[in-house]
Amino acid sequence: MNKRKITVAATGLNNIDSPGPGIPVIRGLKESETLDIRIVGLSYETLEPGIYMHDLVDKVYQLPLPTAGSAVLKERLRYIASQEKIDVLIPNFDAELHNFIKIQDDLKNELNIATFLPSQAIFDERQKSELGKFGEKYGVKVPESHMINQVTEIRKLEESLHYPMVIKGRYYDAYIALTYEQASNYFYKIIAKWGYPVIVQEFVTGTEVNVTAIGDGKGTCIGAVAMRKLYITDKGKAWSGISLEDDELLDISKRVIENSKWRGGCELEFIKTKDDEYYLLEMNPRFPAWVYLANGCGQNHPEALVKMALGEEVKPFTNYQSGKMFIRYSYDLIVDISEFQQISTMGER
């Protein structure tokens, strides 16, 4: 069969010990049975391994860091689009999503680059600090959480939350506190780094289980695959994981995707308690780095996303194989300095 040729741009080429999702997404795309996809890698730094993976990434351009703002990003993409026709762009970094969501319509209208992203409103709803409201609105249990601005408020929360409790920053960092003294220490640590407010969350014990999922933005969950980490690195990242057959977990995940009309890929992180209750801890607004496992057990989510971005109808996946494992490994690429020179001085290779 003749495969249709298209070009997809992807970020997240940092396939390091705490990997970005770019390379796994690209592997899924390269294995499409209907599309022949040329990959344009978009990098932020000069040592992202994906830049040097010629078999997966056909061409690379540097992007301005997200801190430079969406106007600068658009300017750079305008240049890239003048060099080559990009059909679909898949951003894979949390920090860059805000800017891409902001300019998604302009990309389509001015540069004819399709994306498949949620709206800003839905993107904001699943922010850590809004998790309580999110759970209530979309019918999923979440740990009880409160936003506080004063350390003394912890005392008031002791009655309903008990210790241990989780003290979290608005965007990053989470600590488990066993006493008021610890909790107040973490409170100050967090405000020093991330500012107000501080999130105080119920500590839910159990097994962590994760789902990578994709929604069509109209209320259908196109695919969802559940996984449990088998081994984690000292950075807390999955080294190995296994696909699960857990209908209840998948039902809950589908409900979240359907009710929120999520558009694009995402990762749902749950805790399954001893009583078989599932608590949603976090919803990451992009594919996880382990998304290639979904492909490996029968659901090629990156390919589905590209098709939907192109306006094609995609039928929901109905099943996948449980018991498939992923095992990460590292691999040393040998690169001549001239390649590094090329990307460093020209901003592309």
Binding site: P64, G69, G347
Partner: peptide
């Protein structure tokens, strides 16, 4: 000096 991981030259063009 080209530092790996540092902001590249496309870093802040608006300015």
């Amino acid at each position: 000096k080209l530092n790996a991981g540092m902001m590249n030259k496309f870093g802040s063009r608006t300015e």
